[in-house]
Design a binder for these strands. Structure first.
Lengths: 228, 228, 228, 228
DNA sequence: CATGAATGAGTTTTCATTCAT
DNA sequence: GATGAATGAAAACTCATTCAT
């Protein structure tokens, strides 16, 4: 999926420590951050991230202005990936229901990236990334509804919430059963497709998903830069 | 719905120190903790909790030996409440499906306690409380299966996971739409009841729910009590 | 006597931050700690040490992971110095009794370092340092015995205990009479050299000196580092 | 020795908890304090002392206005005991050297009271108690000198310092060898009695022993009462 | 009088962020 | 550009002392 464009060695000529390319450092830091946050939670030490990336603290701060920004970036990576999955499936023609496949592939990616998930809880996510995802999901939901694959009144926000729930399940019990999400997705899909009278309760407005509040970055914790 | 014995108002008109009974202080602290953690997340300052309760830090630490213990207690309150709801419904005879009513009432309680939820994420919860809840849910699932209200292969762990998901939804978007969970529960219930072939994927073992890992309170900071 | 390499002045004229080398900071911290502990005892505030060194608390904790470690290091410096004095005298050829000279020089050093002594009480000292000292003393005692300078049954532990006593005297009354130890050493030396029947009571085993217990730093307070 | 005058039950008539006599409480507290301080050092918690005495904190504070006072009292008990030993021996007629016997009995008492020793380090000791001890020791030294049992120039302060050293030894290694002091006293006594030219260094003035500085109660630590 | 709950300043330690080298 | 030493505010927790019951 998303090509790791920045991963190739860019090399240098001097005999000293090969001038590492900025883009490569960025990748190293993101990978290290994913690991460290997965192990210790978002409270993990930012120096530990730098150390794990084999870089200095200063370098980390050159790439990401704050710990906040680093975490956000991790979340963006995940969300962007899911948006791309959605767009790819929308293009594809075939007999299977793209929405179903989308959920499966997303969960698969989430499970693979399990280490990068803690930040996913963070909200508000950078708006752009979320908007892309929402747009992609909307299209899939629309076409699923039109093909009669899911109930008439299924809403995009219902799918978004399912994604969140799957993410929760993967993060929570993935270590113990990496495939636990499959059963829950199966059940949830039954919920999406089961026939019956319209749902009694209205869906969440999409805009409301922006204010998701899981604590972290809302109830500001952490040092504030020292004024000089 | 069940009087708010655990965290509810404990009398007193206004005056000022109305006779600070130890038990009352405990309640004040739990209420304050619920509020503060809801506002700032579990990283919230413990002194803030004491201040909000109108008590000294030392008093808080007299009741709860550790920040950890305070948080756990908050979670236990919620879990215990749900177990009680389950036991009450199991006793009740009537036409409605107790499991469905159980989920509704639980969600209702969770929504009412929205401010007390952050700690609910914590795991492992003290084992006793969880065991009670699991036992209650098991009974409800069993009878629902036997009455044919839900699919044959619905498992207790599926319901537990749904509870977690509802909790997530309430915590995440409850501020913006306190009733958002109703729709999601409706959909999920359809998933539980929809007819069809057996689920392709096996359920989670109940014991595995114990190792849930959400990273909060693992990346602990601050003093640890001096070992004696 | 021996240049003050360990804690002594480390150059720099006046200006201000003269190039804060890590090693220099370490010395500054040790010197500050010696002073502060001498003034306020081992219960002294660790922040005060940092402040006295003109450094931030964090810097102190970068060099010494724990207050404990800082104190230990101070003790090690003193003990190591005494071991070196012993080794130097063992090499030296001459008419005087090296053991006597050793005691004199040690006391002289202790008196000069009076401000650094509180931690010396701490036990158990890091084993290596103590072992070195014990080995050096053993040699001196042995040769003193063979030359007939001291009684046949003088034991290394007797000398170690005398060192402790001298340290006590210096710490206790040094402020009021910096030379008080001279008289006590003189008396004690008479005790070591006086002829007569063998001592009626057996010496302490050397290993038993390891378990010395003076209670300081056992009644620990404050944060413990987070376990990794 | 010192009769435990206050130990008898004083009894009460009411059916409720026998009104414990104030004097008895005092004794209980002192005994508990000795134990606790011996176990944890002078930094030990004052509540622990009360608990060990089976009394409330308030009761402790009714008997001793501050922790400081409690500690001082413990030291006074020991010093007073030694003064009494001295006076008793001064009265006794016999062939043995009373000073030698005094040191032996003192050490014996110190070893027996090992648990009460930590406070003995404290200085300044309450003046009255020390004065008594000093007076008693002076008499013994004087008569020992006149009988020719010890060197001409032995000074009272030399004996006082020996007492301190013995105390140190007992406290430090008593747990491992309760009789270690016997050998050290033997050696020291040889130092007191060995013939030879006068000591080259002058004795400490007795008054100077008052300013002994072992840290604790000089470099004021601990809470200061909150001004109201 | 005795009790023990309450108090809050003070302690040790952490860690996001800066900046001299 | 990269580094990692330095920083110091903030956090969890303790405990001598007070005082309502």
């Amino acid at each position: 999926m998303r090509p790791d464009t920045a991963l190739g060695e860019v090399g240098g000529s001097a005999g000293r420590p090969l001038r590492r390319d900025a883009a490569e450092n960025r990748e190293r830091l993101l990978r290290a951050a994913a690991d460290v946050f997965a192990e210790h939670g978002l409270d993990a030490n930012v120096n530990e991230v730098a150390r794990r990336a084999g870089l200095g603290t200063g370098t980390l701060y050159r790439r990401f202005p704050t710990k906040e920004a680093l975490i956000d970036e991790l979340a963006v990576v995940v969300v962007t990936e899911m948006a791309e999955i959605g767009r790819a499936l929308a293009r594809r023609k075939g007999p299977e229901v793209p929405l179903h496949e989308f959920l499966r592939q997303c969960a698969e990616r989430l499970a693979a990236r399990r280490s990068a998930l803690p930040p996913f809880w963070r909200a508000p996510l950078p708006a752009d990334a979320l908007t892309e995802l929402r747009r992609a999901v909307s299209g899939l939901v629309e076409s699923a509804r039109q093909s009669g694959a899911v109930r008439e009144d299924l809403h995009t926000s219902d799918v978004m919430i399912l994604l969140w729930s799957l993410q929760l399940i993967i993060q929570a019990v993935g270590a113990v059963d990496p495939d636990a999400w499959r059963r829950q997705l199966e059940i949830a899909w039954h919920g999406f497709t089961a026939p019956g009278p319209p749902l009694a309760h209205p869906p969440l407005e999409l805009g409301q998903l922006d204010v998701i509040n899981i604590h972290r970055g809302s109830g500001r914790s952490g040092r504030r830069p020292r004024p000089r």
